[in-house]
Design a protein around this nucleic acid. Structure first.
Lengths: 147, 147
DNA sequence: GTCCATGCAAATTCTTTGCAGGAAC
DNA sequence: GTTCCTGCAAAGAATTTGCATGGAC
């Protein structure tokens, strides 16, 4: 996989003039390890276990900063915003996303290759995501339900 | 195109036991005419021009009701939630969406056909959307910018 | 020592709910 | 007449901002 290491993330943040605090190091580590999308609340709870007296707005601010910096990417789900490590651009791909654990798996195929766009439409960007359950979260056919 | 008429929408709402108020008739008409996605605020402003003393929460409530009923569909954009007429299911397709006027154009091709999903991943749903500028909103190459 | 990051508090924005009067059926 | 719809107000939730202190450099 083409994920960044904690050190690479920290280095990238430092290169942009950000101060490397413990909290930011931990955040970098969290996302370097995270195989999927995380909600701000998720992240806050995780961080809260490590830092007592942590404030939500600081977590939020850091997520925003890391997003603006291009380290994280933000995606809107029905239930709200989520963050994950930004995939490298030179390797364009899409994702299978697990509805249970929100882990992601790359899809090499890009639908734009096979999409017939009328030439009077000027394409700017596209979004392709597949949702379901991964092998670990897979449910019995019987108890399976749509979301 | 396979959009519903105002009458069909009204009939569908009535069939579900909803009372047909002026406001709901207007809403039905608005979405029957709307070629694209609309924000709740959009809708509220439009309705507000017709009904003085209109309250935002009623608009919201009606959008929700119409969504639960299957008349509208809700989509999360980066900027927030939007609504549009629900496309008929028997004719599965995707959309080109104009970033300017938010008008939509159907894409027949469904990327799932060409996507190689590992068989230990249980697919539940997928999302494929293409954003850009339609022929009416198309911008000069010079002043064109990514969003 | 300087300037940024943090926590605290509060402001905004978005969305939802309770309630009483009025409208649809 | 009964039940649902509406507007008003207010509650919740999600997100953002101002400010003083402490920490990174």
């Amino acid at each position: 996989m083409q994920t960044m290491t904690t050190e690479e993330i920290v280095r990238k943040m430092a290169a942009q003039g950000l101060r490397i605090t413990d909290q930011r190091k931990t955040l970098a580590g969290l996302f370097a390890e995270s195989p999927g999308y995380r909600t701000p609340k998720d992240v806050y709870e995780y961080m809260g276990r490590i830092y007592s007296g942590l404030s939500f707005d600081t977590v939020y601010r850091n997520l925003r900063v890391m997003e603006e910096l291009g380290v994280l990417e933000q995606v809107m789900f029905e239930e709200g915003v989520r963050f994950k490590l930004h995939c490298r651009e030179h390797d364009h791909h899409h994702h299978l996303i697990c509805l249970q654990c929100s882990k992601t798996y790359p899809i090499k195929h890009c639908p734009m290759d096979a999409t017939d766009v009328p030439d009077n439409f000027q394409v700017v960007k596209h979004k392709f995501e597949v949702f379901g359950y991964c092998k670990d979260c897979r449910q019995d056919e019987a108890e399976q339900r749509s979301v």
